[in-house]
Design a protein around this nucleic acid. Structure first.
Lengths: 136, 136
DNA sequence: GTGCAAATTCAAGTGAACTTGAGGTCAAGA
DNA sequence: TCTTGACCTCAAGTTCACTTGAATTTGCAC
């Protein structure tokens, strides 16, 4: 359980000190002690920060992420909700796979107008039908 | 090539009229005509909007998305860059897979402190080593 | 002990992506 | 023709996630 200062945490996580203070302010992470005024962190915050970054990448707000990670505090940890969140992430992954394929298609296909291309149409149509179910 | 009004586009895409006007303002989409003042859209904008939504989900800014989709305008379309973007999307997908597994793990694992759990540690360590390569 | 680079707080500022509101226009149905 | 509801423009406001700057404090190398 070694203690790391804010600069070290910042260096290892890629998150700026100002952001680390902000995360603390909104209750996402905490420094386990102070050396004078200076924050000292347990290295487990590195895990937390990695999860936070992934959560952000998945499109969750910091509040939502806080609810997921901090759920264990004060007796919470809604396991069903967590699986639901994982489902959302997997849905997002499916979207991104379509996007990746679409980008590569556009990069490779000679057709000037992709809306006519049957391959492209097939991709978009399946994406669109899935999307309409989502925001319906 | 049927024309749809802004309400219909909004309904089918899930994007609010105000956002559609905003997208037009920044050059992401365009209405192909006006009926009086009112915008009339070609239904191909539905494809574009779906791609925009996926791009947003992948974490790209509207400007970046504009550069990807609008590249064909005025002779651009950097195919290599597009493959590079697809690579980025696939990297993001890998992150999200880790997140999904981490969430399900936390939901299912009885351990109170996951930083001790070897399964969890393995996931996080691989994620962390990949992350450090990214922001190094 | 002295100096100073690096930390701290707190308030205000920033950029992205929209939304809202006020005031005006107009297509279409009764 | 007249009404009316949906659309328009343009400026200003909002939220989120931070960043920046000013004023202050302090751990640590010398």
């Amino acid at each position: 359980m070694k203690s790391l200062d804010i600069a070290e945490i910042s260096r290892r996580s890629g998150v700026k000190p100002s952001a680390l203070r902000y995360y603390e302010e909104i209750g996402l992470i905490k420094a386990d002690s102070r050396k004078g005024l200076r924050r000292q962190y347990d290295d487990s915050v590195l895990d937390q920060l990695a999860l936070i970054a992934m959560g952000r990448a998945a499109g969750f707000s910091l509040q939502e992420i806080g609810a997921m990670l901090g759920g264990s505090e004060g007796f919470g940890l809604d396991r069903q909700r967590l699986h639901q969140r994982a489902d959302e992430v997997e849905q997002r992954i499916r979207e991104l796979r379509v996007l990746s394929r679409a980008l590569r298609h556009v990069a490779d296909c000679a057709a000037p107008d992709h809306s006519q291309c049957p391959t492209f149409r097939r991709m978009m149509d399946s994406a669109l039908s899935r999307a309409s179910r989502t925001h319906a």
